[in-house]
Design a binder for these strands. Sequence first.
DNA 1: TTCCGACAGTGGGGTCGCAAT
DNA 2: ATTGCGACCCCACTATCGGAA
Length: 512
Amino acid sequence: MLFAQLANLSHQVAATSARSRKTALLAELFREADAEDVPIVIPYLAGRLPQGRLGIGWKVLDQDVAPAAEPTLAVRDVDARLTEIGGVTGTGSQAERRRLVGELLAAATDVEQRYLFGLLTGEVRQGALDAVAVEGLASATGAPPADVRRAVMLAGSLQTVAQALLADGPPALERFRLTVGRPVLPMLAHSASSVAEAVEKLGACAVEEKLDGIRVQVHRDGPDVRLYTRTLDDITDRLPELTAAALELRGERFILDGEVIAFDETGRPRSFQETAGRVGSRLDVATAAEQVPVSPVFFDALSMDGRDLLDLPFTERHTELARLVPEPMRVRRTLVHGPDDLAEAERFLADTLVRGHEGVVLKALDAAYSAGRRGASWLKVKPVHTLDLVVLAAEWGHGRRTGKLSNLHLGARTADEGFAMLGKTFKGMTDAMLTWQTERLRELAVEEKRWGVTVRPELVVEIAYDGLQRSTRYPAGVTLRFARVIRYREDKSPAEADTVETLLAAHPEVTR
DNA sequence: TTCCGACAGTGGGGTCGCAAT
DNA sequence: ATTGCGACCCCACTATCGGAA
């Protein structure tokens, strides 16, 4: 199959807004693909590369290469060349990768070049990624979409399922079962703005503390233990104390879901930055483990002694968990009967925050474990802080925000009547706000740059954020975590904006 | 007809490890 | 030694489609 055929199809998919049409287009191509092309075509159509990451980013792609006039590249050619590029390492590798990418781009037509850019940067912008590709695959093979989604969750990859399905048809889905040692896509939580809202939606539920660490899936099969992240990367070698903890549990074969986090000597959680740094350390694990020891804290059991627990209600999965895992290694929790029991949920949240944790997750007691589309039975609630800050600059947006000033640079007042930048945000804006702020910020512009505009510091904006963290990038030494716009405050003058001083005072633990 | 769940898109900051300077 | 870059952690929010109510 020619690469141009995929590039053109992707273009067509991007051109239609109807999801049903996107699905139909993808299904048609899945049906046409040769068996040998399938392992390549499937990830490409879901906007990804079968090789995963290749060390190719904007710096390597930032070259102007004249496109070829006629399409000649086969799908397999592109794949072979990318595999080659990914294999280049060592001194001079970046220049060599750049040269090879240049050669590939020169062999590609205009449409193919654009598609390649999308695949390599992970921004295909065709309005169809894994989930829509799953629908297309189901449609192409006649398999029920829900069964395909479940198989993908169990296989941890669309590609594996697609190959089996296209080769052997719907019966192939039977082969995808929960297996100890093979990671499954984790169940995720949605957000709720308050405990009351969450309890209202869920009814009887468990309220569990939400730890600010790294998600971990622990598999044990006898003496073999493997640890996986949320994206199913194997991090076994980095966390020997977790392996040891898993081996001490009195069970031979199980899969547990939880969080890994670092605590200080008093049992309070250390900052997310410290936990993340530890989990990210791969080279000198022994030293890292000594300086920042981490602990597993579990909240779910997916498999026990060869039994698949995924479809059991949460209550029963938790019973299994509690039988295996001693209390200190489990997430703290309380049970709530329903809205009339709200006070208990509120009390638990307050207590959890006092302990230094991030918030709570409320989980429906009757819900199965599912990464598929079965509604939000896990709801997280975290406290939100707000500030009035001043817009210092704004950057031009990309994709559907092209032509709009999007990413705002946010400043707080300083003691010397100036402003210190605390970070950026592009979140929380409606289309109307984008249009309005583009016009307003242009009026305030003092300098036009390629990336955007700097403005007179006059526009006050109300910002929500999850907390403060240390920063080496910004002048105050701190930055906002997950900043998002709530609304513009034209009724406020910049002199009424919040100061760095009051911000630091509100989060004493960060600079202590 | 209206409502709402699921998805894709739009990017944010930090840290680590490797290569380049 | 320091800097730049890519990968991978954490993540919020809006617009839109299409099935459910």
